[in-house]
Nucleic acid binder design. Structure first.
Length: 288
DNA sequence: AGATGATCCTGTATGC
DNA sequence: TGCATACAGGATCATC
């Protein structure tokens, strides 16, 4: 499923194709994926003639910004693919929901079998999607800010990390990977982490995301980049999708449990449930 | 306020 | 072999 590294990879590919290019036609827009105040036909009409200014990313959202100051908000859900390529005479793939023709002759396509993805018209894309937590790869995301996010919360740390209002861009794969790297059990209450553990988690989140980005994302099943190519990071995952296989660190079998209503992969030896970090000082009390 | 659960959706995997 | 069912999960909305 597209998380921050996958969406960022697509953002870069898409930016090359659409910045400085005008939209000449919206050849197809399935109204069922359109959200927001502007409905499908009107949204398609508004896109035609707009010129691409930039492609931005916020968490797992993409914003196709136009020189007009407006923009198109895109989310790929679980199975969404956003591709760019030459116009083709071949039939569109099943579950094609959006086809946009550009002045370059290229065509942008959104294909999403499970249809959890969505598009929406943005009158002022500078605002972008609101209510989201910090970008984990930005300098503003520090161990201290992560500590404030986790402090006092009794919810499992995995639930907090998956919550886009707390930290933007993490999904099931990279939360499991980051917790493994930081040697933290996903069901630990978020507020129970000591300062040293928070620091380890902060480093792990950034390292995991950077490594995956360098590999152009993780392809498990659906994900492809904007050129239809697979990401290469799956071969380097520590725990996700590796249930029953030996831990790369200690050799114990990776187990799959359910935490925060999500399939969760961990090494029970490296990530003990009761660990509290020895002399570490617990982060507690009020946030802010 | 904050956390949990249901909902959407279809391809894939499992069970009988 | 074939059919039916369970399962996967990101975000949103309703309900504790």
């Amino acid at each position: 499923m597209p998380e921050l590294p996958e969406v960022e990879t697509i953002r870069r590919d898409l930016a090359h194709a659409v910045v400085g290019r005008a939209i000449t036609a919206v050849e197809w827009l399935d109204a069922r994926i359109v959200r927001g105040d502007v409905e499908g036909a009107e949204l398609a009409a508004r896109m035609v003639g707009r010129q691409g200014a930039a492609v931005a990313r916020r968490g797992k959202f993409l914003v196709w910004r136009f020189t007009s100051g407006e923009g198109l908000l895109l989310h790929l859900g679980m199975s969404g693919r956003l591709t760019v390529g030459p116009r083709s005479d071949e039939a569109w793939p099943r579950h094609t929901h959006l086809v946009v023709a550009l002045s370059s002759g290229a065509v942008v396509r959104l294909v999403d079998p499970r249809r959890f993805g969505r598009v929406a018209w943005l009158a002022a894309p500078a605002a972008g999607p609101g209510g989201m937590g910090p970008e984990p790869l930005s300098p503003r995301f520090t161990a201290e800010s992560l500590g404030r996010i986790l402090a006092g919360r009794r919810a499992p740390i995995k639930a907090v990390l998956l919550d886009q209002r707390r930290v933007a861009g993490l999904g099931n794969i990279y939360v499991d990977e980051a917790l493994f790297r930081a040697r933290l059990h996903p069901a630990r209450p978020a507020g129970s982490l000591g300062a040293r553990e928070v620091g380890a988690l902060h480093r792990a989140i950034r390292r995991v995301l950077r490594d995956a980005l360098a590999d152009r994302g993780t392809t498990f099943m659906d994900y492809r980049d904007a050129h239809g190519q697979r990401g290469e990071h799956a071969a380097h995952l520590g725990v996700y999708g590796r249930a029953g296989q030996p831990c790369r660190r200690c050799g114990a079998p990776i187990v799959r449990v359910v935490v925060a209503a999500r399939g969760t992969h961990l090494c029970a030896r490296c990530q003990p449930a009761g660990a509290h970090g020895g002399s570490d000082t617990e982060v507690s009390g009020r946030r802010g």
